[in-house]
Design a protein around this nucleic acid. Structure first.
Lengths: 146, 146
DNA sequence: TTTGAATATGAAAATGATTGTCATTTCCAT
DNA sequence: ATGGAAATGACAATCATTTTCATATTCAAA
């Protein structure tokens, strides 16, 4: 059992929510999957092993995972909301290739500085940020003969 | 007639699209509205003055406005896509208050620097970026007794 | 171990933002 | 004025997500 699972169970207990078998299956599968996963993909992965779990339950559990800060929502251009692991992960931002859609994660401390500059002069208290840089990845550039 | 309208008409003509009365009404209303507008809000504004214009047409025209770079899509937390004026506006980013939802625009050149740093080391060619800083605005902080 | 209040489930229905369809209209170059 | 092609609008369709509700499950207390 991963520590993140324990965090989830603790979250449930503290709020008087049940620790159901379905929720355990969903959180396990979510933590097993990599990258950015939409709810439907998660549902299909869960259903493959546990056909009795309903789609609605997966959607509901994803919502809980998000509230418990285990999952963070990312949504670059697609219509579907996508989620990535949040608990135990340092904050990072994304490079998004507009050609093939792949994403590259990066971390840069300078942004926090800018954040302080910008928000300080506006009496705005920052909580978190999101930086997305759109462009062309190496692979797409090579395919275009660059 | 605003210059942005002319840009739109030129865009239509260059691509062999018609310059219809409906499209003229929609672009005028779009340019008249301020801030971040969702397609439905635009439709309702247009319909108020010109009840014969259909909702589908508004959606389609918004799509064209976006392609013509008159409208830029912004979408912070809501489910609906929202649009803001793009043509004739310098690039800017957003502070978003998680308390009341208001947004504050800001421009900061340092981000381009970070962009170059990050993408340079990854062989990624940047096209554009989006920085969203979430936090609490002055008003919400005052209401919370800060 | 049993009980029962409250939460959770899942299948089906509903929602709603957006897009597709198609008969008809309109645009605009000739 | 003509006609080919784009556009319209009402309605239908789509699809990711949420709601409904009868039933199941959890878990703390007895």
């Amino acid at each position: 059992m991963e520590f993140a699972e324990k965090v989830f169970f603790k979250y449930l207990k503290e709020r008087g929510f049940y620790n159901t078998a379905q929720r355990r299956l969903v959180v396990q599968e979510f933590l097993r999957l990599e990258g950015h996963v939409c709810a439907d993909e998660l549902y299909r992965a869960v259903k493959k092993k546990h056909p009795r779990v309903g789609q609605t339950t997966v959607f509901r559990t994803v919502k809980l995972l998000k509230e418990a800060k285990l999952a963070a929502e990312v949504n670059f251009t697609g219509k579907r909301r996508r989620f990535e692991h949040e608990w135990g992960h340092r904050h990072h931002d994304h490079l998004i290739c507009v050609g093939c859609g792949r994403t590259i994660e990066f971390a840069n401390k300078q942004i926090e500085k800018i954040q302080q500059q910008v928000t300080g002069s506006m009496n705005f208290q920052p909580l978190h940020h999101r930086l997305e840089i759109f462009g062309h990845c190496l692979k797409c550039r090579k395919e275009k003969g660059e």
